[in-house]
Amino acid sequence: MSDTLTMVGRCVRLSTRNIEAMMTALFLPVMLLLLFVYLFGGAIDTGTKYVTYVVPGVILLCAGWSSATTAVTVSQDMQGGIIDRFRSMDIGGVSVLSGHVAASIARNAASTVLVLGVALLVGFRPDAGPLAWLGAVGILLSFVLAITWLAAAIGLLAKTPEAASGFTFFVAFLPYPSSAFVPIDTMPGWLQGFARHQPVTPVTETVRGLLLDLPVGNNAWWALAWCGGIAAMSVILSAVLFQRRIR
């Protein structure tokens, strides 16, 4: 347990000093938010103010981008000599990977707070009680956990950090064909099926519903099922891959 805390400290420190990770965590979210609100927002009719519609999507999109940092840093650790040293000190894979996952959660927490702050400045008006906020944070957290563990598994699978970064592309891409940025009815028919049945849509709908006090329906359960499933699969995959990587 104390090993895990030390590893968390390590990974958080490393992220705050990694310029690329910090840009991805702090500037990219704000840029994306402003881009969507001012550049695309005018052309998209969602029935509400676009900033109100798009905030959950921007947060999820950033979580996807930031998962690349996790995949790359995990891959770098496995490639460098440091993993041999940790193992020769009997530090388990769980501790090493948990450090990366915790750092990712910290980065995402920072970017989420930043996005919400800027969104409030440019006209985002949520209508949620404390319980609804708590629920929204819980759903976002489970989404971040799920894709971070997936990224960790990708980092273990990839032969090089560059490849790891490439593999996370599809995670980062997933929010586009979902209800995150445009209503699904406006998409071509063949895409609607996919958009309705992929994890980002129920997560977006749940967060949006909770923040705007709209009915959430089954979306919360779908969101939790997706996130729980992806997280469980990725944790198991990571454990197997870690064992495999160390032969």
Partner: peptide
Amino acid sequence: RSISLTGQYAAVDELQTGEENLRMMARL
């Protein structure tokens, strides 16, 4: 528990200071 290993390739974090690296290892 009885050994220590200094591998062929440096096993320290470039983004941490020398002191931070050593403190981390000592904690571990």
